Amino acid sequence: MNTLFPIFVKAEQLHTLIVGGGYVGLEKATALLGNAPDARVTLVAPFIRDELHAMAREHPKLELIQEPYHEVYLTDKDLVIVGTNDKAVNRQVQADCKARRILVNVADTPDLCDFYLSSVVKKGDLKIAVSTNGKSPTFAKRFREVLEEILPDSLQETLDNLTAIRNQLKGDFVQKMEKLNEITKVLK
């Protein structure tokens, strides 16, 4: 049974630490900054891919520290994502985060995760997060691709129109909800 509670965080209001500068670190930084370009991100690793250096030039709030992980890097961090190929380092970061009550995701190790990173469908202001409870990120990615293909690009216009209608509606909350439900029935 999937007991995950899905949330969307305002990443630009958090300070995220990514541990790992290889392909997984690049993937996580790309996903984070792709959704929240102004997010404050610190990435620490003894080796950092060239693509991450290029990304840091485009994102001034992405700080790269080319050193091995040390618990001092957890100071003032709100969220941690770990993606190294060293299981001992991954477990150490997870233990250090637990001791400080910092939520942590350890890539490809569901048992060490407080949260999972979802596969995200974006169409304008609409975001749909797909999760398999850590069972198959590949399936989540493929399902995201299917949704991206079938959802029309005109969805942003629909959302903008619904916002304008909602802002013009009169009455109490229940009356507004009934009217919006009536208008959106066509989406079934």
Rank of each mutant, 00 (worst) to 15 (best):
A56S: 15
L155M: 14
R100H: 09
Q92L: 11
D76H: 08
E71A: 14
L103I: 02
A54G: 00
Q66R: 03
K98G: 00
N85L: 06
D125F: 02
D114N: 11
E149G: 08
V72T: 15
L151G: 12
P137N: 12
L112V: 06
N90S: 13
I81E: 01
P60Q: 14
L147R: 05
D76I: 06
M55N: 04
R101W: 04
I65S: 00
S131Q: 05
R100V: 02
R49N: 09
Y73L: 12
A140H: 04
E58N: 12
F143E: 05
Y73N: 10
D153H: 12
V80E: 01
G124I: 09
A88P: 00
A54K: 08
E51L: 08
D125C: 04
E157W: 03
V104E: 01
Y69L: 09
S154G: 10
V82I: 07
Y69D: 03
I65W: 01
C113D: 05
D50M: 08
L117G: 13
I65T: 02
V121N: 04
A88C: 00
V89L: 10
N85E: 11
T84V: 12
S119H: 06
A107L: 11
P110E: 04
K141F: 08
A54S: 07
A54F: 00
L112Y: 02
L62K: 02
S154M: 03
S136T: 07
L74Y: 09
D76M: 07
I65A: 01
Y69F: 15
P152W: 13
P137T: 12
L126M: 15
T75A: 15
T75C: 10
F139M: 14
K122Q: 14
E149S: 12
N90V: 05
V121L: 14
N90G: 05
N105H: 13
K123Y: 02
D78I: 09
V106R: 06
L126R: 07
Q156N: 07
T109W: 06
I102W: 01
T75K: 15
T84L: 10
P68C: 03
G134D: 02
E71Q: 14
H70N: 13
